[in-house]
Structures are given as structure tokens and as C-alpha cells.
Design a protein around this nucleic acid. Structure first.
Lengths: 247, 247
DNA sequence: GCACACTGTGTGCGCCGTACGCAGACCATA
DNA sequence: TATGGTCTGCGTACGGCGCACACAGTGTGC
């Protein structure tokens, strides 16, 4: 058993299927992904706030404390849930050029987040190390393989796209989290409040924006809006590529 | 008193200084910003986890429940804290062109976040409506005033920059949150773990990136890395501007 | 001078994450 | 096949959390 492996949190060891030498004693009943799936089910149904050790344990039919045989803390449970929620990334046709490829990748990330909006609420304290998270990274990097970018630049570009997708989705996730109001009602309410508070004398730019009827763009995530920002991000990467190939 | 104003959460009314008709009874002792400042002090010192209604109340010398005379819920306390943490935005020299101006704005946002990294951990359920948040928005929009972009496009561009700054900062905030390990140790540990888990056969792109010694770029937020991404984002906006002026 | 809405407080509830110790099940080894 | 050691799953318990609610006292507007 590798020394570095021992430092790994329990959940990561289980997710990667790392095992020490054969040991006596009972085998674990559950698979770590059972726990992740249970957490995902709860979060999908009632939001991240509905995920507690006790509820997840009940969902898998175990007692609260038994979860700690698989997961060292609630933060690790979150890690497992995120891995489960993203799932195995759909492969991206390799014949696509980088721009079409990373656009497809961005759309897939976006869809995953929209399926499980609570992902954006999970507080993160560690960089990603779980298997499927790394597969998503790998997939994203691969579509940039044909570009003249350096390895570091590819990584930064992928991270940039990822940042954008998450950030853009967050603007709509806020809206999702209201069971009592529809998204339209939320938008209208926000617009009304902005008009009341952002008076033209103190906030001329905001007032003009609201007056232009574009407050929708602030809170909205219309595919067009999403594409708008993504286009800008990709144009930026394109500029980097151009600079790279010219030198 | 405006009907729309009544819908406003208590904390927002206090922050905006909205008052109903003169009322009998004692005047509130505290100002809402006292509470925000106390929360900011706690979060700066020991992270967002150290912020509880009881601790904040003790910090201002009141009982737990008295806070609820100023704030309807803990989420509203967060709103007040964020408003307090960002503070009044420093004005941006109007003679700067849009690119220099928004770069300055991005740097200011970045500095505010680095001063109070817990900002990125605050779960958001509402779009921004607090006074200083709107002032930051106004400041960001103003530097785009000279561009040929429409009001909606200006808003989207500012939001895009904001998304980027937050996202880029988040990659380093994870590192900040470890009192026991330095950032270098964290990076090295992450690199070692990546090398162990992301084997070249299953994760050739990641492995190549790590081998290129650029894993630093993934977890790091060196000013250069930050500038790299920002450049890409601004190039994207530039492309939009070019497209707009040509038509 | 009075009524009453308001502020600040105390109590208490249900839930949370998780430390700790125990009983029994199971497997590697002899 | 016997057995020792170790692991799994469980029960209990603790401190802390957000916050609902009722109450006493205060000070203003009428």
C-alpha cells in the first residue's frame, strides 16, 4: 500500500477502489456510491439543506453512525455526492474542432448542473480528486489537444470555461431555490425592487439597464445569454491561440 | 410607505434607511451595520463556520434573539455581512478606457474577496439588492459607458467579468481554508495525489499536465494566472465590441 | 396622561455533526 | 477445524445550531 494512498481520505480510497492487504473481519455491506446516490436523491428532491447524515443513513437503510465507516465527515459525503451527480462524462466526438468540442463540453457540464442545482451550493475545501471529476477534466482537456497551446494553457483554458459555466449557472440557481415563486415572478419582483432602490440619480447605469427591460439578462440564464458569455470566453481563448501560433 | 417596500426583507429596509411613518416605542439601539461588522470580524478571524447568531450577538453585546429585531434570518445576516465586507467601491478614474477601467474594477473586486475569502462560501439565494452591492454594479457598468455596447450587453459583460473574478478566486480560497498546511504544501500534496491517481493510461492529458509541472496553475492564483484568464475574458468582450461597431 | 407598538430578553424545541464504546460477525491463519 | 484479531454496524450522548414564542419594560405619538 502506497504511503501517499494512506493519506487519502477514506471516501476517496473507496471511490478509487484502493484496498490494503487482505484483512479479517466482515466486509462492508454498502458500496460508497450507494451512499452518494442516496444523498443525490435527497438533494434533488428537497435541496442541499435536506441532506443530513441521519437522512442519508435512513435513505440507505442504515443508522446514522454507520455512514462514518465509509465517510470521515460530511464534507466527504458532499464529495461523493458530487461525483455521483456528475456521473461518467459522455464522450465528445474527436472529429470536432476545439471550439465545437469545448462548447459541447460546456453544455454537458451545464446540463449536469441544471440536473442537480445544489452542486453549486456545496462548500468546497479541497480541489477535485474523485474519479469522475478527473474524467470530466480529462475529457475537457482532450478537446483542446489539437491546439497549439501548452499543457498549462490548456488547463487554464479548460478551467476558464468551467468557471464560466458554473458562474453563469449560479445566476439561475438562485431562482430555482424558491418553491413558492416561479422564475418569472422572481424576475419581475427583482426588477420592481431594482427600480425602486436603484434610482436614476444615484444609480444611472443600473436604472438605464432596468429601463431597457434587460433586467431579465441579469437574473436569467436564457440559452442565448449563456451562449453570449460562452462566445466571449471562447473568443478570448481563440485570441490566445492566435497569439501562440504566431510566435 | 410603498407597497413594494413592505415586501422588502427587514435587513434591506434597514440598510437602505427606509422607514415607515413615525412610530411609538423605543428606538433600536444598534445600527444594522454594527451587526454586519461584527459578523465580518468573526468570519475574518475564524472563517464562515465561526459565524452564528449567538456569536455575532455576543460580539455586539446583545442576546441571540435580539438580532432578529434587525434580521429575519441567518441568510439576511449573510447579506448584511457581504455588504459590509465589500464596502464602498473606490471610484475608478473616468479617463481610463474601458479595458483599463474594467481591469481596475476586477482587481478591486479581487482584493475585496481576498480580504474576506469567506465571501465565496456564503450560500446565495437572492440576487444582490443591498446598497453597496448595487454601487459596485454601478461602478462596473460605468466604465463600460463609452463602449458601443447595448445596456444589456454592458450588463452581461460586467457580469461575465464578475463571474470570472469570483471563480478564479475560488480556486485559491480552497487553499486558504487550511490553517494546518501552507499553500505550498497543499499544492505539492495535490500534485502528488494527482500523480498517483491520474495514471497516464487512463488520464493521459491530466498526467501530461502534471508532468509539465503546471499543476500549480490548477490550484494557484498567481497574479499571472489571474491576468491570463482576465485577458481572455476581456478579449472576448473586445470581440463583441468589434462586432457591434462594425454593424 | 394614556395606550400601545416597539425593543430586548429568556426559555425551549427539534435538528445537526460527530466522538466514543460495545456486541457480534467474519476471515486469515494455524 | 479452531481461534484470535479486527472490522462492521449500532446506541448513546454531547455541544451547538437556527429560530418560534411569550413576556416585561420603555418611550413616543396622540
Amino acid at each position: 500500500m502506497d504511503k501517499t494512498a494512506e493519506e487519502l481520505p477514506r471516501a476517496l480510497q473507496l471511490m478509487w477502489g484502493i484496498e490494503g492487504p487482505a484483512r479479517p473481519g466482515p466486509k462492508p455491506t454498502l458500496h460508497i456510491s450507494d451512499i452518494g446516490a442516496a444523498g443525490v436523491r435527497l438533494a434533488d428532491a428537497a435541496g442541499l439543506g435536506a441532506v443530513s447524515m441521519a437522512k442519508v443513513a435512513a435513505e440507505v437503510g442504515f443508522t446514522t453512525m454507520s455512514l462514518y465507516r465509509y465517510v470521515d465527515s460530511k464534507d466527504e459525503l458532499y464529495t461523493v455526492m458530487i461525483d455521483e451527480a456528475f456521473g461518467v462524462p459522455e464522450p465528445i466526438a474527436p472529429e470536432l474542432d476545439w471550439r465545437a468540442g469545448i462548447t459541447r463540453w460546456a453544455m454537458l457540464v451545464r446540463e449536469a448542473i441544471h440536473r442537480h442545482p445544489w452542486i453549486l451550493q456545496v462548500p468546497l475545501f479541497e480541489p477535485p480528486l474523485s474519479p469522475k471529476q478527473l474524467e470530466w477534466m480529462e475529457t475537457g482537456l482532450r478537446v483542446l489537444d489539437g491546439t497549439p497551446l501548452s499543457a498549462g494553457e490548456k488547463l487554464s483554458s479548460m478551467v476558464l470555461v468551467n468557471i464560466y459555466v458554473r458562474g453563469a449557472a449560479q445566476l439561475t440557481a438562485e431562482m430555482f431555490a424558491r418553491p413558492d415563486r416561479t422564475r418569472e415572478e422572481n424576475d419581475q419582483l427583482y426588477g420592481r425592487r431594482l427600480m425602486m432602490l436603484a434610482t436614476p440619480d444615484r444609480f444611472p447605469m443600473i436604472a438605464a439597464t432596468v429601463a431597457a427591460g434587460i433586467e431579465r439578462a441579469d437574473s436569467g440564464d436564457d440559452p442565448d445569454d449563456f451562449k453570449f458569455g460562452l462566445t466571449a470566453v471562447l473568443d478570448g481563448i481563440q485570441a490566445l491561440i492566435d497569439r501562440t501560433s504566431h510566435t
